[in-house]
């Protein structure tokens, strides 16, 4: 069993005819993901990869198909609209890959989602991979093995690094969830930690954080109270200078807060093991 998604999850792709959308739809199909529909306004009626029907609207796609999850590859300027469209059409799980969405757009999205039955993962995230079952997003599937480690991360490529390092040591993931590098996102560490804690297949947890904000500190507090599975963590940005935004919109040390050292201390106090670098994670997992 995996969290959030599994082999039977039926997926819709928003922005399916774009460069990234098309490329990653093919990658998802190759992995075995059940992609059942795509949406691109103005491209309704087209067929992708000889079998995936394209619709002009999410509403149209939902009328013709049963859909469990939507994955969004549309450009940043249209992402708010795309997320709201999916939620409004009744999709219960929306994964937004798009990077560079204005923060005010995301605050509106969050305020809307508070009142509807829809979970958002991301934005600015790599999506979800449940090895051997499904991949929804952009995580390269072949680098990961199936296993019992639950992975939650604010970073995309750093997550691949961890999946790869685990696989090299014969370890695998139950589910890997990228929650994204933006300051305002849909699902946070605590939400995913809670799912892993309650997932019988997940025996150990890896949490990848980075500088900026205080989500890691809140997660540490949650771990100390509610998580009894072993947690191994890596926090990126220990060498980042203050006041500079390190690529991710959310990765910045401001006014003395958001520092890696504070996050590491909080996690250590909560009983988590801290890796000096990503490739140390497998041995730390083995030690618990």
């Amino acid at each position: 069993m995996s969290i959030l998604v599994d082999a039977n999850t039926k997926v819709m792709v928003q922005g399916i005819t774009g460069r990234e959308g098309l490329f990653h739809t093919r990658q998802m199909l190759d992995y075995g993901t059940l992609v059942v529909a795509g949406v691109t306004p103005g491209k309704g009626g087209e067929i992708i990869a000889n079998k995936i029907p394209v619709y002009d609207t999410c509403k149209g796609a939902l009328e013709a198909n049963s859909i469990d999850c939507s994955v969004i590859y549309v450009p940043a300027a249209f992402a708010r609209d795309a997320i709201l469209e999916a939620a409004d059409a009744g999709v219960p799980l929306v994964i937004c890959i798009t990077e560079g969405i204005p923060v005010s757009d995301m605050m509106e999205v969050r305020a809307y989602l508070d009142n509807v039955d829809c979970r958002l993962i991301g934005p600015n995230c790599p999506g979800i991979l449940s090895p051997g079952e499904t991949k929804i997003g952009i995580i390269p599937g072949h680098i990961a093995e199936k296993g019992n480690v639950g992975i939650v991360s604010r970073s995309g490529t750093l997550t691949y690094e961890v999946l790869y390092a685990l696989a090299q040591k014969g370890l695998g993931a139950s589910t890997c969830v990228g929650i994204g590098g933006d300051p305002i996102n849909g699902t946070n560490f605590i939400d995913v930690l809670d799912l892993f804690q309650n997932d019988p297949e997940t025996k150990k947890i890896v949490m990848i954080g980075e500088i900026g904000g205080s989500d890691e500190e809140l997660a540490a507090d949650y771990i100390s109270k509610f998580v009894d599975k072993p947690v191994v963590s890596f926090i990126a940005g220990q060498t980042a200078p203050p006041g500079k935004r390190m690529g991710h919109a959310g990765a910045i040390v401001e006014g003395g807060s958001g520092m890696a050292s504070d996050k590491i201390e909080a996690l250590m106090n909560a009983g988590a093991l801290i890796a000096n670098h990503p490739e140390e994670i497998p041995e730390l997992l083995a030690s618990r």
């Binding site: 991360s153 604010r154 970073s155 995309g156 490529t157 750093l158 997550t159 691949y160 690094e161 590098g181 990848i208 980075e210 500088i211 890596f234 990126a236 940005g237 220990q238 060498t239 980042a240 390190m246 690529g247 991710h248 990765a251 000096n276 670098h277 990503p278």
Partner: peptide, 17 residues
């Protein structure tokens, strides 16, 4: 030269480590 902010930070960190 790295792709992804987290990995770019992680790469800096490991060089320093």
């Amino acid at each position: 030269m790295v792709n992804g902010a987290g990995l770019a930070m992680g790469t800096m960190d490991i060089i320093k480590y």
